[in-house]
């Protein structure tokens, strides 16, 4: 023993002081207090904020936001899953199509895609729908459908990548085991591969859904009546800009806050059999 420190049986080890934590806490609290003060003494009329928080137009906006986020996400998941499976199938034609889709939709801004869908009539004045006939594109491309296609197809490109990483995370041996009990590729996907890929896919999908909630605000640009669009309509009339923007902020935060525990429980449930 070359160490000069002597530890006898009664020595205790004292933790290092945490003064730096106390100091940083004081600084942060001071900053927050200043921020609250600044908002409190500003021209914000808080009674407008609380008044408009639950007003009908805003509530309809919240419902429209949720409807769009869920619909676009479902469209994205269907597209993403399809392309991810197709990419793995080994058919070079479809692989190229899937890669091209991801490249195109990830490579351009969502707002541009929304505007293109909304203005589709400028390229195709009429669209022929099988079993229905020709319709005017202006009438077909409502704000809802344009936003759904814009957000859903864009989301699908990202989800393709997520699903692909999920599928490749499942060991090839699992698929071979499926084969050896006589399963076809589709049955193996449904019963074994996808349930296991879900484990890897759920956390990033949850993040994508939370992003999607906020991305829907872009569809206010094409007249889709979600939260932000509703708030704008109100402040164009009464000029209470900051008040209404705070109202929208409150609702986005509320939705996201509610979703986070949902994601947590989903992850817990899907991890059965791994956590032991």
């Amino acid at each position: 023993m070359s160490a000069e420190i002597q530890l006898d049986d009664h020595s205790t080890i004292i933790e290092r002081g945490r003064y730096h934590m106390v100091v940083s806490l004081v600084v942060i609290l001071a900053f927050v207090a200043w921020l609250i003060h600044a908002f409190a003494v500003s021209d914000i009329e808080w009674k407008y904020v609380s008044h408009f928080l639950m007003v009908r137009t805003i509530m309809q906006g919240v419902a429209a936001t949720l409807l769009m986020a869920i619909s676009a996400m479902m469209l994205g998941i269907v597209i993403g899953l399809t392309f991810a499976i197709v990419q793995q199938s080994g058919n070079p034609v479809w692989k190229t199509v899937a890669a091209g889709y991801v490249w195109l939709f990830r490579g351009t801004p969502v707002i541009l895609q929304l505007l293109l869908w909304f203005n589709l009539a400028l390229v195709f004045p009429h669209i022929w729908i099988p079993g229905y006939g020709s319709v005017q594109t202006v009438q077909l491309m409502t704000p809802f459908l344009s936003a759904l296609l814009g957000l859903g197809l864009n989301q699908g490109a990202y989800i393709t990548e997520i699903m692909r990483s999920g599928l490749t995370s499942v060991d090839r041996g699992q698929y071979e085991a499926c084969c050896m009990i006589g399963m076809t590729r589709l049955l193996a996907l449904r019963r074994v591969i996808l349930p296991q890929a879900l484990r890897v896919v759920i956390p990033p999908l949850g993040n994508e859904f939370i992003s999607m909630i906020k991305l829907t605000s872009l569809s206010s640009m094409i007249q889709y009546p979600e939260i932000l669009h509703s708030a704008q309509n109100i402040y164009y009339a009464n000029a209470r800009v900051i008040e209404l923007l705070l109202v929208t902020g409150f609702w986005y935060l509320t939705i996201v806050t509610v979703l986070m525990p949902v994601q947590y429980f989903l992850e817990k449930r899907i991890n059965r059999g791994w956590s032991g």
Binding site: G173, Q174, E176, A177, V192, Q196, R272, G273
Partner: peptide, 9 residues
């Protein structure tokens, strides 16, 4: 299989 390949879920 050598590595069992039981369905882990």
């Amino acid at each position: 299989f050598q590595k069992f390949n039981l369905f882990s879920h």
